[in-house]
Design a protein around this nucleic acid. Sequence first.
DNA 1: AAAGACTGCAACCGCGCGCGT
DNA 2: CACGCGCGCGGTTGCAGTCTT
Length: 251
Amino acid sequence: MASTTTTTMEGQFSWINYLEVGWRKGPWTPQEDKLLIEHVNIHGEGRWNSVSRLTGLKRSGKSCRLRWVNYLRPDLKRGKITPHEETIILELHARWGNRWSTIARSLPGRTDNEIKNYWRTHFKKGKSTKSVERERSRFTRQQQEQKQYQYQYQYQYQYVEELQQQQQQLLEVDSTTKGMMLQVEAAAVAPEMQEMSSYMSPLSYMFQGGGGGNAGGEGSSEEVPWAGINLWNLDDVQLPADHEDQGFPFY
DNA sequence: AAAGACTGCAACCGCGCGCGT
DNA sequence: CACGCGCGCGGTTGCAGTCTT
């Protein structure tokens, strides 16, 4: 790929880049977006370096991929990060650090870039005092919501345990050929289920006294164990009257 | 009302990994 | 094994909009 190095003096919208290197830079136009969307609709994602050749777009493959992933993908969620999502970001960042793409996998519709930007503007060290003050009042509100989320996560955890029990019953009841097949399947799933239950709740390690599991570990926690399960849509869970009593050790 | 400070976010860059040859 | 290519990731930049003084 041609070098795309740009000096600050040239600026990111420089025509010099286009004339000398060939790739256009800077903000995307609606026409460019349209071309890229059409291309992906026809050819699918991937092979980004061939996009310019096939569409006539004067954009590098890298730029095309970025534009698609961060802005044009149809499954992207628009709008502000919700307090709920913020909680998840805080939790997952505590677990994984700056592994934004890993964190993004737990937040359907949000991109790593979006989360990274959000983190940097809201939680990065060295924020101004005013910002901190604003954040503090926001945090107070958030704490109230945390209590509710805690209960919701516990509810979800119980649900997984029920699933495990049901699966166990299936194994015990059916010893026919069909049952054998189920056992094979279940055996394959079992370790994953076990791991899932160990940190089904993103906040579970807090409830367990913190620091457990493979926090900070490399590799093994790459895949999000609850992918495919809609953890974050528990709005209609009914809270018992005594849930207020449950403390919440938040930071 | 104006100027400066701050925030949000799109987009770029360099680096490293995985894969095919 | 070495190399090149494509891609994904995390860090950074810069601009437009908003807020504060």
